[in-house]
């Protein structure tokens, strides 16, 4: 079942960011994300996906352009307002690429309770949320374990859980499948589908084309010059082999059939097919 998509929930206008005011990370990015939508930002390494996600979550602030959440401008100044900060943080959750840095509490349970307690959710309800999320993510056995004693997959589940207990409307995932084993990847994809069906707006930064294909997202492709090269459905983007090749998301692959050399575009998921 697909949840009907609403109006724009997040809008980016001419967003630009450069590190140390010298190294460009993102340039003139315009995006509109609708409520309930699954939206992927894809691009090769270093195209500015993570920076863009951190700008969207109001954690770093753009050096050019404007960003709006439900028509409210999200700026450094706006986030200094107590009520706007609460309004924004309880609606937008961010799952970091590196779970290690996201997990800063002593145990898994503390991690899951941190967000809701910050949002002034009462302790009983926060505990209920943590319990239900642990059950859904199958991490009940890790409840009292220190976060540094978890495996990569477990850390990812706890990191997602720590945001889920806040029940945000928009969830931003930075490279969610990075470094996960196939079973955890599969679990994660199922989870993302279920969250989308539950009405969450999902924004995913990735270069994993299979994830984009499985979730059938809207896609914005970032080029190596840190700009949006194309926005379209996953089908439109993934079928544009020339664009993917140019964006360094697939590569030319040469191999031999007997003595005959053979060349085709190659990605480890979608494009291992032989053209005529």
């Amino acid at each position: 079942m697909d949840v009907a998509q609403g109006g724009p929930i997040m809008r980016l206008e001419g967003i630009g960011y450069s590190y140390h005011n010298r190294i460009p990370a993102v340039e003139e990015v315009d995006l509109t994300i609708s409520e309930g939508e699954k939206f992927a930002i894809i691009g090769a390494n270093g195209t500015g996906k993570s920076t863009l996600m951190q700008i969207m979550s109001g954690l770093v602030h753009q050096t050019a352009g404007k960003i709006f959440f439900r028509d409210q401008e999200v700026s450094e100044q706006a986030l200094k307002n107590r009520s706007f900060l609460k309004y924004f943080r309880e609606r937008v959750g961010y799952v970091f690429q590196d779970s290690d840095v996201q997990l800063f509490c002593p145990t898994v349970l503390d991690e899951l309770l941190y967000g809701p307690l910050q949002l002034n959710v009462n302790e009983d309800e926060a505990m209920d949320r943590a319990r239900e999320v642990m059950k859904m993510l199958e991490i009940e056995n890790l409840r009292d374990r220190p976060t540094y004693m978890l495996s990569g997959g477990e850390k990812k589940r706890v990191a997602i859980g720590s945001v889920l207990t806040m029940n945000p409307e928009v969830m931003l995932f930075d490279e969610p499948t990075n470094g996960l084993d196939p079973r955890t990847q599969c679990f994660l994809i199922e989870l993302l589908v279920a969250l989308s069906e539950a009405g969450k707006t999902l924004v995913i930064a990735t270069h994993d084309l299979s994830l984009v294909s499985e979730l059938e997202t809207m896609v914005a492709l970032l080029s190596e010059n840190h700009r949006v090269a194309k926005i379209g459905t996953s089908e439109e983007i993934l079928n544009d082999e020339a664009l993917l090749l140019k964006a360094n998301l697939i590569h030319e692959h040469i191999h031999y059939h007997g003595k005959e050399a053979h060349k085709h575009s190659h990605s480890h998921f979608l494009f291992h097919r032989h053209s005529e």
Binding site: K80, R82, Y87, M136, N167, V193, A198
Partner: peptide, 25 residues
């Protein structure tokens, strides 16, 4: 997976639009 989604996650945070108020951090 869908059957496991907790009820609180299906609830919307609030449909109320943002009402600006004072209080600087």
């Amino acid at each position: 997976m869908k059957s496991k989604i907790p009820a609180f996650l299906i609830e919307r945070t609030s449909v109320q639009p943002y009402v600006p108020s004072k209080g600087r951090l």
